[in-house]
Every structure is written in structure tokens, then in C-alpha cells.
Design a protein around this nucleic acid. Structure first.
Lengths: 368, 368
DNA sequence: CTGAAAGCGCTAACAC
DNA sequence: GTGTTAGCGCTTTCAG
């Protein structure tokens, strides 16, 4: 009886030992990640010490540090960011709600956001709303639940609801809108008026006197289109000339193509020699129409666009246009958020980014 | 003395009450989100009950439910997903590492991933590696720390390191590579061989006998280009004709433009009437060169591409090409991950998606 | 310098 | 049906 008891105790002990190893090393590393506890156990220190060497938050003796580092290495330990976030209340997440990541300009913006965010160890949580206001609202809530520290909304719709509801979330956010003019909320926009001024001046310098502006705005007042129109009118007026504006219904290549014959009439009646379109798509559609009707661009007529969409540099003739710095737009937006997160004051409500004139082939010097 | 004691107790009591309210309602709702505790307190139930009504995990009496719902409403309470993730070990996050979100095809893939993921309540954590292998590895680690449940890598580089190191992370992942042929790892690809067969057959049906293939591959063996070449050769051979292949150095518009004169020689020497380019960019560069050298496409020569990049439908002549379903690629990739996450078995290692022939204007019936 | 212990906000046994 | 309690993996006092 005494013997068997001894046997038992000898048997139990190694079993427990094996169990212990399994729970904390073998099994762990096989099906789930090692935790700070495992590291502490292996290094024979407390979890606080492990935490200290990971975060370098407090001095740790060289010996302890060595052991901890070794244990981390051996276990392939990586801190669980979720747990860390819970206690520090820092998710290092920025929520980004876009209209459609498939739009190339949107992708450029996101690229800027992501690249700069990354530099400051922020990750991007991406949502596409596809222009649906309800989705935007739902995503905002969802992102809040995921504890994002800031939010950037890249939208194409004018949504008072969004900008209002965002105010109740007490986190930094920036609203990027390509079409609408929303001044009540922090935003980063492009200097569209300056863009128009630069473009019209360029055309003027090429010797053009009668410059037609093709707009796509009906209800211009709340959109940024009004700034482009303003810049155009101003510059033409200042040159002592008369602005002429034609409104196309829509913003697609076909839309301009379909308006082609009407535009040709205007050209003839007003002796137009240069056309400034409010979007590249319209310029291309128009040039296509002109080409199909034997009017050569730029030989007989100069046509310029706005936006520098991907096709513009490949299209023949290569389009003279205005390049909008979408990457920078994203970069500035997130910088602004990061700044606010650091507690620095945001001086200006709205930041205006400069645009760039890209001179290519579709507009040339007037021959007289 | 007795009086003042009574006074004191009367005074203290309301103060405590006010303090209590402040801590759990006023102050809270002003600077930080309400927690489950606040809801429980307001509704006068335990936190478990609150949890139960939120998750509908267990029956709750109508009365308690009503009170909880009201408290949630009043406090604007939203569960903290981070805390929830920590205990449930479900982050509802899918990590996506892309080469460059600025590439339009990459954006399309991400669009597919995002849209389908969203349907199953998964969020996308996005990283751009810009083709840097080290970044990819670093992001993989970072995403693991963020506890993503699955990972999709959209890369343009051939990275054995990546595919190997991904194996140590025990989570579902899919590797999407546009150029390289990596069979050791789960992937979703396009049926490039079939694409070539379809395209060459189309050209054959148009009456073309001498079809030149423009490839961009030097070291073709490890890339998917070999499948395109295979499909081309096979189909031409089966028609009793002779394949002719020209290799362009590079994959950009200029690269094909610069190879223009050499290609024209081949055309003349071999009586070529149709050219099949392995990428749209090359087709466009070539057509530009031909145009500049007074060879009309498609009147004198048919030229087709591969990829259906954005420009292809706008370019004149509109390019006949192969459309790759990038959106679907992303959608299938995430579906596969979701499936694996649900514990369903993944039958095939590699999924091949069909491509689509887009007939436009750049290739026409032979006139004889 | 180090460890014990509290707690972030939540879920999930476990008792009642 | 409901409340109590023990964690999830981590950081951060607070004592020693």
C-alpha cells in the first residue's frame, strides 16, 4: 500500500509537469498565439516585467531583459493589439468611408491617407458606401464601435445629415467632397477658382480671345463648380472679353459627345477658338465628336479639360488639363486628423490645396 | 450636535447621488462613450441582462428588455467592439495587403473584397506594400497582431518568403498575383490559357491567318504569361498555322511604341494581318506607333490587347480585348476565406475564373 | 528594479 | 429569468 502510494505520487508529478508544458508551450504554439503569460512563465519573471521590456516603459535589469527577449523569440510572441487597445484606449485605427474605392481618384486619396497614416502607425479601416447616405451613417456608427480614433469621409453626395451626425462623435474627422461645397465642417479642398484662373490665363497667353466654358452644373450654387465658373468669368472679364458658358447635362464622355452639334453651333456663331471643359471626360467626349465631324483638335480648335484623369495623358491629342493632387488631399486630411489627435490646435477650418496646370497637346498657340 | 449630524447626513446623501449621476451619465456622455455598466445601472439590471438583450443570447423578461432598450437609447450606448473581440476572440477583421491601391485593377479587387466581406460583417484592414517584400512581411505581422481572422495578399512580386511565412500564421489566407504562377499556395487566378484560345479563335474567325503575338516575357516559366503563350501557340497550331512571337522589353505604352519599327519589319516579312498583344498597354503603344507611321488600325491591320484597362474603351479605335474580372477575383478570394472561417472544407487549392472577350473596333474582318 | 493586483468593457458559465 | 463571477490579454498603479 505504501509502495503504491509512492508510485502514484511519482506518476502524478511528471504528468502534471507535462500538462503544464503542453498548456503553455506545445499546445499554445500549435493552435493559438502565445500570450504575455507564457512569456513571463518561460522567462521566469512576472508579466509586468515582460510588459516593461516590450514597451520600454520602465527600466528592467539586463538579465531579466535578456531572458524575456529570449522567451519572446522562442515563443514567437507578438502582443495582442486588441487587448492592448482595450486598456490603453488607443486603437491606432482611422476609419475611412469612401464613395467607391473603384473610382481612380478615390483610390488616390486613400493611397495618401494610408501612406501617411502608416508613418504614424495608424491603420486604415475601409468602407465603401456607394453613394448611399444610410450606408454612410451605418458605417460611421460601425467604425465608432471599432473604436477608430479619427474618421475621413470621401463622399460625392451632399449630406447635411452626415456632417451633423458626425458632430456627436467626439473624434477628429475630415470630410472630403469633390463636388459639394460644405463650409460648416472641417474639410480639405482644392482651389478650384485659382485653377480656372490659371487655365484661362494660359489660353489667353496662347492668343485665344473667344473662350467657351463647358460646365456641367445646373444647380451650381452648392457645388464647387461655382468656383470654376467664377475663376473663368473673372479672368475673361479682366481681359476685357466676354464669357460664354454652355451647360452640358451630365459629366460623362457620352454626355459631351451628345451635346456636340449644339456646341459646334455655338463655336461658329461666336467665333470660338478655345474651349475649356469643366471635366476631362467632357473634353474627351467633345474632341471625339469634333474628330468624327472633321474638326481637328488642336489645329482648328483648342480644347482643354480639368482633372487629369488617367486617360488624358494617353488620349490623342494628349489633353492639356488641370491636375488635382488627390494623393495630397488624402495626405493632408490624415495629417490634420493626426494633428488633432496629438492635441494640437487646428487653426484653419478649411485647407485649400493648389492645383497644377498640365500643358500637353490639345491647346496650341493661335495662328493668325 | 444631533441636529447638525442629521443635516450632514441629509447633505451628504444628495451629493453622493449627484456624484453618482455624474460619473455614470452626464460626465460619461460628455467625454466618453457609455459602457455596459452604465446601461445596467440606468436600467436597474445586471450587466449580464444587458449583454443578453444586446446579443439576444438568452431569453430576457419583456419588462427588463424594455428597460434595457430604453437605457441604451437614452445613453446612446454602442457596444465596444474591441472589448467584445477580446473575449469572443473574433475580430471580424480581414487583413488586405495590396501592392498599390492606386492601381485601378487593385482597387477593383479591393472593391470586391470589401463589398462581399461587408455582407458578412467583416471589415477590411488595408495596407499598401508598394511592391516591397519586407513591407509585406511586416504588414502580415502587424495584421496578425490586430487579430485579423483572414488575410488576402494582392501582390505583383513573386515572393516565396511571403507564401512560406504565411504558413506559420494559422489563419485562412489567399494569395492573388497578377503575374506570377505560384501553385504551392491557395490562390484565385484567371484562366489565361482559355483567354488566349478565345482571342485567337476570334481573330481566326475574322479570317486572319498570320497572327503575331506580342509578349513581354523574358523569363516566362514562373509567370502566368506562359499560359497566354500556350493558348496562343496551341490555337494557331491547331489551325494549321505558324505561331510568331515577338518579345517586348517591358509592359508600358512607351515600351511597345519604342519597339514599333522592329515590329513593322516583322509584319512586312511575315505578311501579318493581326496582332495579339499580351497587354492593352502594349497594344495602345503599338497602335500609336502605327498611327504615327501611317498604318491604319484596324483598316490595314487588326490589333487586339489583353486586360481591358480603363483607356481601352475610350481610346480610338476602341480596343478589342480580354476583360479580366477583377471585382470577382476579390469577391471569390474573400468568399473562400469566409468559407474556411466557417469551417467548411476548401475543395480546390486553386480557383480559376473565366475571362471575357470584349469585341470592339480594333480588329475587323479580313478583306481580300 | 520587480511582482501583485486592479481593471479596460465585454461574454459566458454558473448558481439561484 | 437573473445576478454573480471569472476571465480575455494587456497596461499600470502601488508596494516592496
Amino acid at each position: 500500500m505504501g509502495d503504491s502510494l509512492i508510485w502514484l505520487s511519482v506518476l502524478v508529478s511528471p504528468q502534471c509537469f507535462i500538462q503544464y508544458i503542453c498548456m503553455n508551450n506545445i499546445v499554445r504554439s500549435d493552435c493559438m498565439a502565445a500570450t504575455i503569460k507564457d512569456v513571463a512563465k518561460l522567462a521566469e519573471v512576472s508579466i509586468s516585467t515582460v510588459s516593461r521590456v516590450i514597451n520600454e516603459s520602465k527600466p528592467v535589469s539586463p538579465e531579466a531583459r535578456r531572458r524575456v527577449l529570449k522567451a519572446i523569440e522562442d515563443l514567437g510572441y507578438k502582443p495582442n493589439e486588441i487587448a492592448r487597445s482595450l486598456v490603453t484606449k488607443k486603437s491606432n485605427l482611422i476609419g475611412v468611408i469612401v464613395d467607391d474605392i473603384g473610382n481612380s481618384y478615390v483610390a488616390q486619396i486613400v493611397r495618401g491617407i494610408e501612406e501617411i497614416g502608416r508613418m504614424y502607425k495608424y491603420d486604415i479601416l475601409l468602407c465603401s458606401s456607394y453613394g448611399n447616405e444610410e450606408s454612410e451613417l451605418r458605417f460611421m456608427q460601425l467604425l465608432m464601435q471599432k473604436q477608430v480614433e479619427g474618421m475621413i469621409i470621401v463622399s460625392e453626395i451632399e449630406t447635411k445629415k452626415i456632417t451633423e451626425s458626425v458632430k456627436k462623435y467626439k473624434i477628429p474627422f475630415v470630410y472630403l467632397n469633390r463636388f459639394y461645397d460644405i463650409l460648416q465642417t472641417p474639410t480639405v479642398t482644392l482651389d478650384n477658382e485659382l485653377a480656372s484662373i490659371i487655365m484661362v490665363k494660359h489660353l489667353l497667353e496662347l492668343g485665344h480671345k473667344n473662350i467657351l466654358y463647358i460646365s456641367n452644373g445646373n444647380n451650381i450654387e452648392r457645388t464647387i463648380e461655382k468656383y470654376k465658373v467664377k475663376g473663368y468669368k473673372e479672368t475673361v472679364n479682366n481681359a476685357g472679353l466676354t464669357p460664354i458658358i454652355y451647360n452640358v447635362n451630365g459629366y460623362k464622355i457620352e454626355d459631351a459627345y451628345n451635346a456636340g452639334s449644339e456646341i459646334i453651333n455655338i463655336i461658329k456663331n461666336n467665333n470660338i477658338t478655345a474651349i475649356y471643359c469643366c471635366q476631362d471626360e467632357l473634353a474627351i467626349g467633345l474632341i471625339n465628336y469634333l474628330y468624327d465631324n472633321n474638326i481637328k483638335v488642336p489645329d482648328e480648335l483648342s480644347v482643354v479639360g480639368y482633372g487629369d484623369i488617367g486617360i488624358s495623358s494617353i488620349y490623342r491629342p494628349k489633353l492639356t488639363t488641370i491636375k488635382e493632387p488627390y494623393y495630397d488631399l488624402g495626405a493632408v486630411a490624415i495629417r490634420r486628423i493626426l494633428k488633432e489627435l496629438k492635441g494640437e490646435s487646428i487653426d484653419e477650418q478649411t485647407i485649400k490645396l493648389p492645383v497644377q496646370l498640365i500643358i500637353r497637346e490639345s491647346a496650341v498657340q493661335m495662328k493668325n
